[in-house]
Deep mutational scan, measured.
Amino acid sequence: KITVTFNGEEKARRYYKKMQKHNLKVEIRVENNQWVVHVE
């Protein structure tokens, strides 16, 4: 499981979509004013 933190929504969403293309289970959320993407 990987957790990647971004300081911008745009970058986070781009990464999220990229990971989805690989058929990975991805989850995006905001934690402590940071955009966090969890990849299983």
Rank of each mutant, 00 (worst) to 15 (best):
N7K: 10
E31H: 08
Q20R: 12
I28K: 00
Y15F: 15
K1L: 10
Q20Y: 06
H38R: 11
A12F: 06
N32G: 14
V37I: 05
M19C: 12
W35V: 03
E27F: 09
V4E: 03
F6Y: 02
E31K: 06
K21R: 12
V39K: 01
F6L: 02
V36H: 04
T5H: 10
K21C: 12
R13M: 13
K21I: 08
E27T: 14
K1T: 13
I28L: 11
K18R: 12
E40Y: 15
Y15S: 01
Q20V: 11
N32I: 05
V30N: 11
R29Q: 08
N23Y: 12
A12I: 04
V36T: 07
A12Q: 02
K11T: 13
T5W: 12
K21Y: 09
L24F: 13
K1N: 10
A12R: 03
N23W: 09
E27K: 06
W35G: 00
K11P: 15
E31P: 01
K21D: 11
K1A: 11
T5V: 14
I28V: 04
Y16E: 03
L24Q: 05
I28F: 03
V37W: 01
N7S: 13
N7L: 09
K18V: 08
T3D: 04
F6A: 01
E31M: 08
K1F: 13
I2M: 10
Y15W: 07
T3Y: 07
E31T: 06
K18N: 08
K18D: 07
N23T: 04
F6P: 01
I28A: 01
E27G: 04
Q20E: 06
R29K: 11
V39D: 00
G8K: 15
Q34W: 07
T5E: 04
E9D: 02
W35Q: 00
A12P: 02
K25R: 10
F6I: 02
V4I: 12
R29S: 11
V26P: 03
I2Y: 15
F6M: 02
M19H: 03
V30Y: 15
I2A: 05
R13L: 12
H38T: 15
N32H: 08
N23Q: 08
E31W: 06
M19V: 05
V26A: 07
W35N: 00
F6R: 01
G8W: 09
R14M: 10
R13E: 04
Q34R: 11
E27A: 07
K25S: 09
N23K: 09
V30S: 07
Y16W: 06
V30I: 13
N23H: 13
H22L: 15
Q34T: 09
V39A: 03
E9C: 13
E10V: 10
T5Y: 15
K21F: 10
E40D: 09
R29V: 11
Y15L: 03
L24G: 04
V30M: 14
K17Y: 10
Y15V: 02
V4H: 06
N7F: 10
A12T: 02
R14F: 08
Y16Q: 05
V39L: 06
K1P: 10
E27R: 05
V26E: 00
V37H: 00
N23R: 07
L24K: 08
K17R: 12
N33R: 05
K17P: 01
E40G: 10
V30G: 04
E31G: 04
R13I: 10
H38P: 01
E40N: 10
A12H: 04
A12D: 01
R14D: 11
M19T: 02
N23L: 06
H38D: 12
G8F: 11
V26W: 02
E40C: 12
R14Q: 13
K25Q: 09
K18E: 13
K17G: 04
Y15N: 01
V36Q: 04
L24I: 10
I2R: 11
E10Q: 10
E31L: 11
V39R: 02
Q34H: 09
I28H: 00
K21E: 13
M19G: 02
Y15Q: 01
R29W: 12
E40V: 10
R29E: 07
W35F: 04
N7E: 13
H38L: 14
R29P: 00
Q20L: 15
M19W: 05
A12E: 02
F6H: 01
V39M: 05
A12L: 03
T5M: 11
Y16I: 06
N33K: 06
K11S: 15
K25H: 11
N7H: 09
H22Q: 13
Y16S: 04
I28T: 01
R29D: 05
Q20C: 13
T5C: 15
R13H: 05
V36F: 07
E9G: 04
E31C: 09
Q34E: 06
N23A: 10
E10R: 12
M19S: 03
K11N: 14
K1E: 07
N23S: 07
V30L: 14
K11R: 12
V37Y: 01
T3R: 10
Q20H: 05
K21W: 08
T5G: 04
V36W: 03
H22N: 09
R29Y: 14
F6G: 00
K18I: 12
K18L: 14
I2W: 15
Y15G: 02
N23M: 07
Q20D: 03
R14T: 07
V39Y: 05
V4P: 01
E27M: 08
A12W: 04
E9R: 08
E40T: 12
N33L: 05
G8P: 02
K17Q: 13
H38F: 11
A12C: 05
E9N: 03
F6K: 01
Y16K: 04
E10W: 13
L24V: 11
M19F: 04
K11V: 12
N32M: 06
N23I: 05
Q34C: 12
E40F: 15
K18H: 15
E10D: 11
G8M: 14
V37Q: 00
Y15P: 01
I2S: 06
E31D: 06
V30C: 14
K21M: 13
Q34K: 14
Y15E: 01
R13D: 02
I2F: 15
T3H: 05
V30Q: 14
R14Y: 08
N32Q: 06
T3N: 04
V37E: 00
W35H: 01
T5K: 11
K25Y: 09
K17C: 15
W35L: 02
R29F: 12
K21V: 07
K25N: 09
N33E: 08
R29T: 13
K17W: 10
Q20M: 13
Q20K: 14
A12K: 01
K25T: 08
N7Q: 11
N32Y: 05
Q20A: 09
T3G: 03
V37L: 03
Y16A: 15
K25A: 07
E31Y: 07
K25P: 04
E10M: 11
N33C: 10
H38S: 15
Y15I: 02
T5F: 13
F6E: 01
R13G: 02
R29A: 12
N23D: 06
Y15A: 02
V30D: 03
I28P: 00
H22D: 06
T5A: 09
I2H: 11
L24T: 05
V26I: 05
E27Y: 10
E27I: 11
V39F: 06
Y15T: 01
L24A: 07
N23F: 13
K25W: 08
M19Q: 03
E9I: 09
V36M: 05
V36Y: 06
I2Q: 06
G8D: 15
N33D: 10
T3Q: 06
K17L: 14
H38M: 14
K11D: 15
V30R: 13
K1G: 14
I28G: 00
L24E: 03
Q34A: 07
R13C: 13
R13Y: 11
N23E: 05
K25L: 09
R14G: 04
K21A: 13
L24D: 03
V36L: 06
W35S: 00
I2D: 03
V37M: 02
M19R: 02
K25F: 07
N32P: 03
N7V: 09
K18G: 04
M19D: 01
K17D: 11
K1H: 12
N7R: 10
T5I: 14
T3W: 06
V37S: 00
R13F: 09
V37P: 00
E27N: 06
K21S: 13
H22E: 08
E31R: 05
R13K: 09
K11W: 11
V30K: 14
K1S: 13
H22F: 11
F6W: 02
Y16R: 03
Q34M: 14
K18Y: 15
V30E: 12
V26N: 00
